[in-house]
Design a protein around this nucleic acid. Structure first.
Length: 304
RNA sequence: GGGGAGAUACCAAAGUGGCCAACUGGGGCAGACUGUAAAUCUGCUGUCGAAUGACUUCGUAGGUUCGAAUCCUGCUCUCCCCA
């Protein structure tokens, strides 16, 4: 029996959660989350994890299975996803993958090249070098170690440069050596559906959703995270703005306003990420029946 | 009724004779991104154009000047103070 991974992606706040549950029920299957912030068990209000009611209706995976203190990455997600989907495909022909984390979705789809793990010491070394000597120093290293990547790299983005340096140094081969961009074979077919709507409509939804998060206790949740705030998982919209408020740098109203703005910008970045992906079939979230028939059609056609 | 202050692009706010299509901030738009990605980084934001550039702007109508957002006059509106 052929296996299908149905992906439901879309920007934050567009309504993926409810729709995914309906679709999973229709196909009598389970949902794998691909939302890099819903992984953390300490976060729930600010990440809009599915309600207990929904979690009870359909089995979800990768929801709050990590701690904000855990190290995690797109490649770990790829590994975990392959393990899990391998198991679930024994019971189901179709699985639902829902989320808004573009890079993680790509990881699940096999679009990341295999690159060896790096020695954390090497990473720390370059992070230290960046804070002590600045970007220019890292650039000089990169030009020497990996001139090919240097030519195409975003030389103003320290994260890109550090990544290339740490790989090159840890593995003894330049970062560009590992970049093939071929894509890896998966033993299931991928059906990508995307949700979109008018910008104004989406921005209204986002603004309203932030207000409801605040009434649902986002501030309290953020306050509890103060001791853990320097973990990367908390460099997240909804938390970092409240930290600024707790520090006395901005007012509470300002923090809420910034959460809305940053959520809007995040949504835009997500849409930009997917814009170049031509094999996504786009729908308005209200077109539930259309999505279902599209998926049915795709799964039937492929079986022929 | 008297006195004072001001009207600048989506908003806020600089500019006070040429270096001004106009600083800066916000908001917005667009993009990049193969390992902490809700992160990180970049460009644009008067109109037309891929671009050199052209054209129209600084409440409004005139005027002074080689040249005005900047100076002068009338008008309109806003705000503040005193009555």
């Amino acid at each position: 029996m052929k296996k299908y991974l149905v992906i439901i992606l879309g920007p934050t706040g567009i309504g993926k959660t409810d729709l995914s549950v309906d679709i999973a029920l229709r196909f009598k299957t389970e949902i794998i989350s691909c939302d890099s912030r819903q992984f953390y068990r300490e976060l729930s209000v600010g990440t809009a994890v599915p309600s207990p009611f929904l979690l009870n209706k359909v089995r979800h995976h990768f929801i709050q299975h990590l701690s904000v203190t855990d190290y995690y990455s797109a490649s770990l997600y790829e590994r975990d996803f392959l393990n899990l989907s391998g198991q679930l495909f024994r019971k189901h022909d179709t699985l639902i993958l829902t989320g808004g984390s573009g890079l993680y979705i790509d990881a699940a789809c096999g679009r990341l090249d295999d690159i060896p793990d790096v020695d954390p010491e090497v990473r720390n070394k370059y992070l230290r070098k960046y804070s002590e000597e600045g970007l220019e120093s890292l650039r000089a290293d990169l030009r020497y170690i990996d001139p090919d990547y240097y030519r195409i790299a975003d030389l103003r983005n320290h994260k890109r440069i550090i990544r290339a340096l740490e790989i090159s140094e840890s593995t003894g081969k330049p970062y560009s050596f590992y970049l093939h961009n071929k894509g890896k074979e998966r033993n299931f077919s991928i059906i990508k559906t995307g949700l979109r709507m008018d910008r104004d409509e989406l921005y209204h939804r986002i603004n309203d959703r932030v207000d409801s998060m605040v009434s649902a206790g986002l501030e309290k949740e953020a306050r509890k995270m103060i001791p853990l705030r320097y973990n990367n998982a908390l460099n997240t919209v909804g938390y970092k703005e409240f930290f600024s408020y707790f520090d006395g740098d901005i007012s509470r109203e300002k923090a809420i306003e910034l959460i809305k703005r940053n959520s809007r910008r995040y949504a835009k970045r997500q849409m930009t990420w997917w814009a170049r992906n031509k094999d996504i079939k786009w729908f308005h979230p209200e077109e539930k029946e259309n999505i279902i028939s599209y998926v049915e059609k795709m799964t039937e056609n492929c079986e022929l």
